[in-house]
Amino acid sequence: MREHVKEALDQSTARFLTALARLLPGLVALTVALLISVVLAWILAIVMRRLLVSLRFDERLVRWGFPSPAEWSPMKSPSILVSRFVAALVIMTGLLIGVSAFDAELTSLFVQSVFAYVPNIVGAMLVLLLGNIIARFLARSVLIGAVNMNFQYGRLLSVGVKWLVIVLAVAMALEHLRIGSGIVELAFGILFGGIVLALALAVAFNSKELVAKSLERDPAKTPAETIEDPLRHL
């Protein structure tokens, strides 16, 4: 009896040690991959931060219409955020490579599916970035044009245009990420249609006076047509 127990224990220990011995190279590979990726991420983050600082990325971002660095906390300036994001991306990649070194079918499949999803994430981020830039450009165009036409609610219109484009970009990004695509489409359709309908109703019924006031810069009120204007510009 004792011998049977001893034999079973030996076999279990042998199986455990064999499994551990099989797992060890994978663990070592994971550790090495992580270490390399951390070092690489650290170097890349430094290079990226210096590059962005030399390119005056923070100032350019403000010129493109994003909030000024004063609105970000000092420790989270856009340059620092971008460099940290790049570092996190490298570490994540290192981790996935390390995990795949276990040579297990399950982990391989997991890693493959994660890597296959990366283009979607990158695409969605690009869509969001472009959408943001376009939204801010259009908002500024609308604001300046509206002010030059003496439109009293130019700022409101400008904010409306900005959010309309941002909402469109977010919907496109979510569609790209394959997250709740049906719901997003439906929500976007309702939101977009609602905004257009609200504008149409505002013009037609409810805000007739408001719109009339906004459009006060009608020809009857411009100096050019009420009296003969003596001003000549060029």
């Binding site: 030059n148 411009t222 003969e228 001003l231 510009h233 060029l234």
Partner: peptide, 13 residues
């Protein structure tokens, strides 16, 4: 002789 201003277009000018 200068043309009268186009008030909608001063920003373009």
């Amino acid at each position: 002789i200068l043309p009268p201003p186009d008030w909608t277009n001063i920003s373009s000018l």
